[in-house]
Design a binder for these strands. Structure first.
Lengths: 124, 124, 124, 124
DNA sequence: GTGGTCTAGACCACG
DNA sequence: GTGGTCTAGACCACG
């Protein structure tokens, strides 16, 4: 899986890494139990500091998306806890995006079609 | 229109103000041509720095949501330019939220229902 | 409130800081809404790096014990979420300690007396 | 006696083994003089490195919980030295747990009931 | 070889 | 002035 950082983005690098891995898990690019690159390997590949990658992994770990151990490095967790509801922060963000989209003249149909695309085929 | 700041949020205050005004415009709480409170008034009412409100207004102006003139202060624009497409940043954010929702066990139906609610009745 | 680090301990410094602040809040030394020392001040006072203090604060923030903003620094939260149950990790630790105490010849009464002391007078 | 490792825990495996054996001794699952599995057998059974098991046994030996001899392998000690007091580290940990429990809204009664349960019937 | 911790030091956005 | 991010580099425990 390729992780691509947008250097111009306001989103911190560690957050971008975290986001892309979450999207990778959701999209099926990263399977349950799959090995992630080592902290050092990913840092080297991306030309960033190991601390930055480490922070991304620690967040993913604290959120329950991955597990780490010193022998095997980091792996996608087999059983990710299902909260069953959107966080308040995500609801707020979603509302903001929908609002901006509406003003920008994007139809509800188009928006839903995007959600549909990002959600994928499974688990409807 | 009441603007509510979440102290616990990591989103900067000026950004929260900007977001709520955009959501206000989209939701119809703020009509085209409607007067916004002055920078001073809003800052006083919210107990925050005038610079913070000013920054929010400047962003809204640069984004084309509001217009300012020396005499009348700030007003919602009558004709907001319709981009017709989601920005790259918003697409990315939407994808992130959908991904997290999917992993959290939220069905596509539920998500679409949220989008539907936030979009409102107009402009379908 | 004085934070004292045990340099010989295996517990990481940031964790020790986090623990002492939690104990300070529980014991009433740190009141709701009370200001914590700035990251820089505490780092200087303790002779450690700002990153280490910052990490402690970020953990406390993510756990909901404190809130931070760039203007006011860090403060104890007014409403700390009550989980209502001991975490699995804490249950396990408690069981380990009780087991070791029992083997060491400490009576149940003595143990309970310690719990009583640490819990304090309120909220029985 | 079954030893169960929590892969997700940050507690090192050797420490988890050590802890479970101590809890086994305290709870009476492991009797005085009872034979422990050989390092190799336990490592094989648990699918971990023999060094890891060996380290756990060495700690238990240095703490006086078990004894080893070349012929019989490891056995629970008949007379484990009773310190008569909680170690400083355990006191600190207990205080931390009690503090977190208190903030989490757990009553003193509930906590004491847990201690009671973990302590068991003997040796009150 | 792996992740985890820590430092010294720098720069930045927010307010 | 504040917390947040990031780097380069070092050392450590675990396994």
């Amino acid at each position: 899986m390729i992780i691509r950082i947008d250097e111009l983005s306001d989103v911190p690098i560690y957050q971008q890494i975290r986001n892309q891995i979450v999207m990778g898990i959701s999209g099926g690019e990263l399977k349950a139990g799959e090995q992630l690159p080592t902290v050092r390997a990913l840092a080297l590949e991306m030309g960033i500091n190991t601390m930055t990658v480490s922070k991304a992994y620690q967040i993913l770990k604290s959120e329950g998306y991955i597990m780490t151990d010193r022998k095997n490095g980091a792996r996608v967790r087999n059983e990710i806890r299902q909260e069953g509801a959107l966080s308040d922060a995500n609801r707020m963000e979603l509302k903001r995006i929908v609002s901006e989209a509406r003003i920008a003249g994007i139809s509800k149909k188009e928006l839903i079609s995007l959600v549909d695309e990002y959600y994928g085929k499974q688990g409807e």
